[in-house]
Design a protein around this nucleic acid. Sequence first.
DNA 1: GTTAGGG
DNA 2: CCCTAAC
Length: 659
Amino acid sequence: METEVEVEGNDEGKFEEPGFGKIYSSLSSAKQLTDPVVYKLVRVEGDGRLVPATDDEVMEVKDLLVDEKSEVCTVADVGQPIGCISNDRSSPGMLPQLESSEGLSPSENTEVDPDKLNARLEYIEEMLQKVKEEERLRIACGSRDYSSACVIVDSQCSDQLDKLPAIDENLQSEIPLQETGPSFAPSLIQSHMHQSGGVGECSNAPVLTEGRALTSTTVTTSKPDFSKLNGEICLDNLSIKELHETFKATFGRETTVKDKQWLKRRIAMGLTNSCDVSATTFIIKDNKLVNKGKEDGSDNGDGALANDPATGTTMSGGQQGLPISHGSQLEDQVVSDKRNRNIGDNSGSEDHHTEQRAAKRVRKPTKRYIEELSEVESKEASGKLRPIVKNSLLGQMSSNFHTRSARNVSLEGRTVVTRLDSLGGSGIQIPCVSRVRRSRPRKNFMALLKFNPSSMGVTAELVKKALGAHSFLPDNYENERAQSAPVQFLGVADEDRQFLSTGAVGGHHKVLKQVDSSGDSDDNVVTVPTSKGGIRRKHHRAWTLSEVMKLVEGVSRYGAGRWSEIKRLAFASYSYRTSVDLKDKWRNLLKASFAQIPSDKGINSRKNAATMPIPEPILLRVRELAETQSQVPPNLSSSKVPGTGSSGNSVHEKQSGYL
DNA sequence: GTTAGGG
DNA sequence: CCCTAAC
């Protein structure tokens, strides 16, 4: 609401770029299907809330939308981008791709056929699903990476998104994931983007079925066929099989969900084109819903079926009314919310509620369970089933990939595997997570948090800039060191000057030639073998010289041990260094400073490119600080202490006036 | 939430 | 860098 980033389909919306084309509603009623509609970029917060995206994010998403690595489905005929981006790698400079997609999405089209809409619905649904799922898992794993999963949804449903429950245990169990038939493999979508195929094709194609990847038989997306639904239907009396048929007739696609309750609700929603699932009996004549079984007076508004002007078939409203219906809890909220807003619909809410209450929920598997399960799973699966699908690898996901009831979704490297498990007797989806940690939050994640620059934040930002412009160049270190007095290594960059201003006013600090060494653009993810045999990801970030110096200064200023202080005050600009990191680094520095004194040559010769050597002056300083703070490792205390560089010492004195 | 220490 | 116990 505050930061409206809604984009009108054909106004100068953020996405109204050449090549993106109009954005049509596929949600809500059929009448609107041809109307340009507002799409909205939302971000999934850590607690599950969906909040409007900021402009920056919109831009970012836009970048990502043309990033081939991201999951984007540009439905060719309509040309609207629907994308699900999950964070981290915004790779700019991909805009040229716009051109390539431009040709295939001529936004002339004004007609949308139900198949496509269905597919799009499913896609949006699925994307949301993914996002929620991912976010949930992320939370389950204790990761609080806010690097924003984004989804573009239209505004109708974004209203309801606001009502989404916080991601919690209920979400998962209430969403039979496998229901959404077509699983959209990004690469396949990509490949399809270059054909003129409609959505139907798009949705059918990427079915990961062995040997027949492109000719889906497991999923059929056809038009809803209401001819099969003549007469009176009482959902309560139907078997699962019949419910499946009804489902198909209603939505034009199949489902494998075995949850009767879910099926009934879903169908009810579909038939009534509303979120009202109170009715379970319907009378259908001439392909139209004549009557809801219960509560007649309630057909103002919701009850009416929308007719698709194009095909004349009755649209499946449920999906459209609630494209992101994530099970009863959401419905609960949506319905109740509806009650507040929508005067017309009071019918059956009591029944509805009792029904809701009656439906028992199964407890979510714990994080531990998930992880352990995943481990077992991956062991079992090794060889026959590959739970890891690489986003970009079309070839690899081909033949020997069995996917039956489980739906595997891979999001930028992480893999979300759902499996059917018999937990608590009802088939619910147990998410499996490959036990890899997420990569680091993206650098500008602060912005995503709507980080309001406090006074502190402002300076931090300034410092950051300064640092970006002048940070020490490690490579130069050797030369500099050779040519100039070691003192220069204790010279401070601009930001440090502020920092040191109290104590070190007089000293004119030479600023070395600097280059952004801490620019840290690369989120190199390194996998490290653990002792337990597994491998885990480690986002390693080498300590730069300037960081080390900051640390040293911080320690000298605030004292070793006040890590959070140091972190907060001296490392405000390094979002990725935690206080623990500082502590660890200091520990290492300490060790190094006392260990490496004996052989000055040793360190020089032994330095490889991998581990940047700590300049002797810094080590000296570390040593000094360690002594003054009685942190000297007991076993080494006797060895040798000061004595080396007198020049260094003097400088130290100068700089450590605030010791 | 921080810090210390071990892995 | 991660984890965890102990503040």
